[in-house]
Design a protein around this nucleic acid. Structure first.
Lengths: 221, 221
DNA sequence: GCAAAAGTGTTGTGATTACACCCATGT
DNA sequence: ACATGGGTGTAATCACAACACTTTTGC
């Protein structure tokens, strides 16, 4: 058993905010094992490919994301239980990715095997250990929310402070105090005023903000 | 390239406090590649073995730890760059483990190829990408220190508050205020008084504390 | 009694929250 | 003018740290 052969895959927890809830992109399987079950998008790692490149390839393929477009992408955890795939010994390096709703909504509309499902209410059993992976991704996201500019990956380039607060509330499941949240965000230095305002509101339009340059530069490409 | 074969290994960042510094157990390699370089202990994952079991096997083998003894063991990150091992395509699931100094000191004395080296001053280039892995382990440990009872794994069953403070200072590299640290620790509920006191001190002996049961139960076996 | 370190009480400061209020816009 | 949500000021609370002090032990 000096070095037994393994298959190495990446699985992706592609998340966004849909209808005010943190949701994950799932794909209905057409083949055994777990035919007809929902599963995370994923694939085998190429023999000359880094783990991160494999993950980016899946994001681009499934989300229809342009190759240069930015998203938050981060390695999550590696799942390697001998029983997790009945076909062969597979080690899956799970990643999580965050995208604005518009990008994933387009992908779901264009392909009938894709669905956006709230992470706290998956609705049915998933294939493999994918429910466990999603729970781990949600935990990690909650943990990073306060000390990392991770939430902005779920918003378009321009957003209001109310939008940002809704994202935080969707991820944590807690309602937040408006003035406190506003000041906390402004104090981080992560966002900048643009002077622009939203339009088509039946009431006073909120100011639009954008991510500060130094924060945007730190995001995964 | 449907599912190319990979070798899957675990590498272990086995850490302890030695001479007041956070240190890592390294092994001098006798074979190519990187012959004569220091490297992390590690090994191939068995075909019927979980990743955690493989990591525990390495800890027991290298640290001479009794199979039932407790240690902190946690998956860290997976390194899979195609160039990281010149022999073959290898994916390494890095783990970090924490042990009391007495355990690792015994291992180092019994085997001439092992060494305990301060993590912030490795002293020489390491094999593979192991210096990167150690840096990641140190970062993770620093990040968990305040919200997780991780530091107790580096101490014997009974310890003084001064011992605990020294551990925190060794990990973070910062000196801490004694009364503030003491109260912060007592407020966490992680530790309990024992009523016992240290002996053989040339001055007033400090009280010995132990980990609360519910915290100890949560530790990895 | 002295030295050395253990352990505690008190105060001050900064961060965060809660609440109340004012402001700007569309109808 | 009014309804609606955007945005701001003020006060209270909490966590944490700094400092000074008292206590206990060995010599």
């Amino acid at each position: 058993m000096s070095h037994p052969p393994f298959a190495v895959t990446v699985d992706l927890v592609l998340m966004t905010i849909a209808d005010g809830r943190l949701s994950v992109l799932l794909q209905r399987r057409s083949e055994e094992p777990f035919a007809d079950r929902l599963a995370l998008p994923g694939g085998f790692v190429g023999i000359e490919e880094t783990l991160g490149d494999a993950a980016r390839r899946i994001v681009i393929g499934k989300a229809g994301l342009a190759a240069g477009a930015s998203a938050w992408l981060e390695q999550l955890y590696t799942f390697g239980d001998p029983q997790r795939d009945p076909r062969m010994r597979t080690v899956s390096v799970a990643h999580f990715a965050l995208l604005p709703h518009a990008v994933l909504a387009r992908a779901v509309l264009s392909r009938s095997d894709l669905a956006l499902v709230p992470v706290t209410d998956l609705g049915e059993p998933l294939a493999f250990d994918h429910a466990t992976i999603i729970a781990a991704a949600h935990e990690r996201l909650k943990g990073k929310l306060d000390y990392s500019p991770v939430a902005f990956a779920l918003l378009p380039d321009l957003f209001t402070l109310r939008d940002l607060q809704s994202v935080h509330e969707a991820i944590t499941g807690k309602t937040l105090n408006k003035p406190a949240f506003r000041r906390r965000m402004l104090d981080t230095g992560w966002i900048e005023r643009t002077g622009q305002r939203e339009s088509d509101t039946p009431f006073r339009p909120a100011e639009l903000y954008k991510i500060s340059v130094q924060v945007a530069d730190g995001r995964a490409g």
